[in-house]
Design a protein around this nucleic acid. Structure first.
Lengths: 197, 197
DNA sequence: TTGAAGACAGACGGATCTGTCTGCTACCGT
DNA sequence: ACGGTAGCAGACAGATCCGTCTGTCTTCAA
């Protein structure tokens, strides 16, 4: 049993991982601001002191939660795009299909960064994490647009980001997963118009 | 001086209006969840009991705040569309120009309903107000699409709502007012494609 | 003129939240 | 074998927030 031998390092890492999982579930489901520390540690089965020794403060936990979500989202997008599509042009449109995968998952509550930014004070950790995420999203579309040979890659990327955000909002607030196909349809037209065949 | 003679009814209405103004400024700027009752009454120059006799609870004030914002947004949109454009087809695209007016206003913080929905518990007053607003937005585009003779008015309206939401998100989170022209450009193409000339 | 109504100012209780601190227990390395 | 480390459990302080309540003052109506 690998469960028996746990060095302090491993125990610490396990507690940290449980905290991050609990934070992800609770923060995403109910909002960063509505969920207190006590709920998180109870859901993680962890002592309060462990949380503060691992993350320093609630802000630290929130930052780790958003960073983990950022990397998970980016990795999933990269992985699925590479597995499903072969050309940059296909991937520009395929990104909406990958986004749409989450729309029908149980517990989908829209973009975590948009929700977290709602009540966030300016200059706080949430704003910084959101900026990082937005930069990643813009670059994702911009790089693909350049690779696809778009005439104005920046303009094309901006238009696709609009559709991407809009699809997420509509799938969340309107509980309408068909936003994925709607956004993808428009995206395909925009991409075709911007990239010479 | 009309300031001298104030009946109890007028005094009550004035206090209510001041509360609503203060709530609008504070709730929109910092988030419904982050602003406490004490801040609102202090900013309004009103006693706490007055708030509770006028709105019953913080939830009641939040509901009134969102409803007021809904009607103000709807009236502004209707007014500007009628003043600026003549045909339903022009108005379908013009809605983005009207939306863009707010992007450069000082204190712009994105869509109040999206922000308020972020930490809102299901079944609460915020969710209800957001539903009402979303229905209005969908119907706005749907009615115009029908009047413009779109082949599939529902599909066209859905696509334009995506762009509308996306523009608001980008103007807010990316601090990029150019989202308006980007959305309008795509909207014009989508409208032209969906409406037989 | 006197009573009713309503706003104002502020104290208050109960609940909740963040962050710290104190014991207790279990496991690892020397 | 034993001391140190780290998580667990929970109490605790300080702050904040919602909502209620008391008391005072102004204004209108009878």
């Amino acid at each position: 049993m690998s469960k028996k031998a746990l060095s302090p390092r491993e125990r610490s890492a396990a507690a940290r991982a449980r905290l991050l999982t609990a934070a992800n579930e609770l923060f995403y489901a109910e909002g960063v601001h509505s969920v207190g520390i006590d709920r998180v540690i109870e859901h993680a089965g962890v002592a309060k002191a462990t949380l503060y020794s691992a993350f320093g403060s609630k802000d630290g936990l929130v930052r780790a939660y958003l960073q983990a979500r950022h990397t998970a989202t980016a990795e999933r997008m990269t992985r699925e795009l590479e597995a499903r599509y072969d050309t940059p042009k296909e991937r520009l449109v395929g990104a909406f299909e990958v986004q749409g995968l989450s729309f029908t998952e149980p517990g989908f509550r829209g973009c975590a960064f948009i929700s977290a930014s709602a009540d966030a004070p300016p200059g706080g950790v949430v704003e910084q994490a959101a900026q990082d995420y937005r930069t990643w999203l813009r670059d994702l579309f911009f790089d693909l647009a350049q690779q696809a040979g778009a005439k104005d890659a920046k303009a094309l990327a901006q238009q696709l980001v609009l559709l991407y955000d809009g699809a997420g909002i509509s799938a969340w607030l309107d509980r309408d997963p068909s936003a994925e196909s709607a956004a993808r349809t428009v995206a395909a037209a925009v991409v075709d118009a911007a990239i010479p065949a």
